[in-house]
Amino acid sequence: MTADPYPGYAWLREHDPVCPVDDPHVPGRTWLVTRYDDVRACLADRRLGSGAPVNPDPHPPGLSNLDGPQHAGLRRLVAAAFTPAVVSRLRDRTARTCAHAVESFAGRGRADLVAEYTREVPVAVVHDLLGVPEAERAPAADVLDMWYRAKFQQPRDEAKLTEVLGYVRRLVAYKRSHPGDDLPTRLIESGALTGDELEVMVMTLIGAGHITTIQFLGTTILRLLGHPDQRAALLDGDVDWSQAINELLRLDSPDHVAEYRYAGEDLTIADARVSEGDVVLLSLAAANRDPNKFPDPDALDLTRDARPHLALGHGAHTCLGSHLLKLQTEIAITTLFERLPDLTLDIPSGDIDWGYAPTFRGPKALPVTFTPSLARLPTVDGRVCAS
């Protein structure tokens, strides 16, 4: 992915807002939609389905690939675990996770925040949500690599898909033999899902629960490093966290495109004639910088009311984990900058290597320097202890 795709998005919005694109990985014709009003309307248009006409996977479709009553029924099974009240119970544990991660490199004076922080925290938090103890988890780098290559890379890596399925099956088997006060246990005890459906649900929750947040934490840190005055206002409490996070999501949408939509009938989007069976790609990132919706859209303004942004979707498939993402972001950013107030990017921002295209966009590494400081948490043999 180009380091800055936004000029291209701007050109498309102005000159070709619903344009045919070449996608060798899907059959038929594919359209890319870039204007805010069109993208928002498409996200709620029932004529654009989320399920491929032919399911290419050896397992049942998950939440992101279903529509109508099937989707609504599955969503109801898990929605209660993602309410603000329930997510808030993870606050203390998330704070400990963030603090331990920062302490692991605070004494060195330099770190790669992607490898050591923005990747570690979301993977830990989603496993906490699912009641999976540390001893049963794969390393965070392996989790990201498995899910990206198996589920989001095109063409997907079939060996990694097999690896993901094996990992999920092990976790489900563990929860069957070690029930707890967690979502997988409740799903198992409800009997509402078959074994395959349960595995797909866990697979979906882990994937959605970490890969977007990893990208967003990286871009958020980068933005706040580049805007010290706005960062200070946020950390001093002069800007509301929820408002700031919505603006950061708008400016740097971690998901650049929504999941594929499939036209169930002939329809018109803007002036484009889309035929039944065509694939429609909805550019959330382009929509969120549409100047007709957001004045001065390329500027970061933490005081902006960016709530109409589409970074977390719209309609029936709006992201279930929005409250969890926002909780993690507030805690992770506060912990990092309060602990290491002189944090500085160690390379020019223009040299950042961006990755995870075409679906996502985030820095692949964030090398930083800071004044080394002694760990504040108890250690054994130089390692930070779990609390």
Rank of each mutant, 00 (worst) to 15 (best):
residue 228 P to E: 02
residue 222 L to V: 15
residue 262 Y to E: 09
residue 234 L to W: 03
residue 260 Y to N: 12
residue 229 D to G: 08
residue 238 D to E: 14
residue 233 A to T: 00
residue 234 L to C: 01
residue 225 L to M: 10
residue 234 L to H: 02
residue 239 V to A: 04
residue 256 H to A: 03
residue 237 G to F: 03
residue 264 G to E: 12
residue 245 I to V: 15
residue 253 S to T: 15
residue 235 L to N: 02
residue 232 A to H: 11
residue 248 L to H: 01
residue 222 L to A: 12
residue 224 L to D: 09
residue 251 L to T: 09
residue 232 A to L: 07
residue 240 D to E: 14
residue 241 W to L: 11
residue 249 L to N: 05
residue 257 V to W: 09
residue 251 L to K: 06
residue 232 A to V: 05
residue 224 L to E: 12
residue 262 Y to Q: 07
residue 253 S to H: 06
residue 227 H to V: 00
residue 264 G to I: 05
residue 232 A to W: 01
residue 252 D to G: 07
residue 254 P to Y: 01
residue 241 W to H: 12
residue 226 G to D: 14
residue 254 P to Q: 07
residue 249 L to V: 05
residue 255 D to K: 09
residue 250 R to W: 10
residue 235 L to V: 04
residue 251 L to G: 05
residue 260 Y to R: 15
residue 258 A to D: 14
residue 226 G to V: 01
residue 253 S to Y: 09
residue 239 V to H: 02
residue 258 A to H: 13
residue 231 R to P: 04
residue 260 Y to I: 10
residue 227 H to N: 14
residue 223 R to N: 13
residue 251 L to Y: 03
residue 263 A to T: 10
residue 248 L to P: 04
residue 257 V to L: 13
residue 260 Y to K: 10
residue 261 R to S: 10
residue 225 L to H: 08
residue 238 D to C: 00
residue 237 G to N: 09
residue 256 H to R: 14
residue 264 G to P: 12
residue 235 L to M: 05
residue 255 D to C: 11
residue 223 R to Y: 00
residue 230 Q to G: 04
residue 242 S to E: 14
residue 242 S to V: 07
residue 247 E to A: 06
residue 230 Q to S: 11
residue 246 N to R: 12
residue 230 Q to D: 05
residue 231 R to H: 06
residue 248 L to K: 01
